[in-house]
């Protein structure tokens, strides 16, 4: 080890190899997936809401990747939805899979909690709904008005959370965020072929049966 340049070249080659394995090859495998036909692209408002989700850092407490039933029945039981597949994320720029569940998984929150009013109340003050919640309140996504205009959305609140003499009105950013949350719904059925592209390491028997089907369908040996 007497040649710095040799060390640098070796180091670069190893990183190139790792990048090939971890980024490039999987990239080819999952980058240009066809959409399932059920999933629709986000609307302009939902995309704006998605930006609010990103810039408030929701991802640091909420994942968007339910686990398979083979790994745990808990996710399905809680209503978080079926195990997700790469095709569920084709419109996600950037991805928001998350790695933390201080709060629940949100990939199907739109199906589980479709009410706009519920979300607005919950965002303004989570403890107005769950007194045990540790989610931050987001009062800055709302404004206080004495006389809300006709087209203002007034947030419903229990009396102890109501500011005296004012009504709580949702700002556009809150409405956008809720529109995004309502759009989160991947409860449509998924084909085995798509399922095969997700991690099946916990699924035991299930995996071999499904991969058999994939083989039969595609005619590969």
């Amino acid at each position: 080890m007497n040649r710095p340049v040799a060390i640098l070249i070796g180091a670069a080659l190893i990183l190139a190899f790792a990048t090939m394995a971890l980024v490039v090859i999987p990239g080819f495998q999952v980058h240009n997936l066809e959409t399932t036909g059920y999933l629709e692209d986000y609307t302009q408002q939902e995309l704006r809401g998605r930006q609010v989700y990103i810039n408030q850092g929701c991802i640091y407490c909420h994942s968007q990747q339910p686990r398979s039933f083979g790994q745990t029945p808990a996710d399905m039981t809680k209503g978080w939805g079926r195990a997700s597949t790469p095709a569920d994320y084709v419109y996600d720029k950037p991805h928001l899979l998350g790695t933390m569940r201080t709060g629940p998984d949100l990939l199907n929150v739109g199906a589980r909690l479709p009410s706009q009013a519920w979300h607005l109340t919950h965002l303004f003050q989570p403890r107005a709904i769950f007194e045990w919640s540790l989610m931050p309140a987001y009062p800055f996504l709302f404004e206080l008005k004495q006389q809300p205009a006709a087209d203002d959305l007034v947030v419903k609140l229990p009396s102890q959370f109501k500011p005296a003499g004012h009504q709580v009105v949702a700002k556009q950013s809150a409405l956008d965020l809720v529109a995004y949350l309502q759009s989160l719904d991947r409860t449509y059925p998924v084909a085995d072929k798509e399922h095969y592209l997700r991690d099946q390491g916990f699924d035991g028997q299930l995996e071999t049966e499904q991969s058999q089907e994939v083989k039969n369908e595609s005619g590969e040996g």
Binding site: Q29, Q65, R67, T85, T99, L197, D199, G201, E207
Partner: peptide
């Protein structure tokens, strides 16, 4: 970091 996630096994 993605064990059990929506990526190939």
């Amino acid at each position: 970091h993605l064990v059990g996630g929506p990526i190939p096994t």
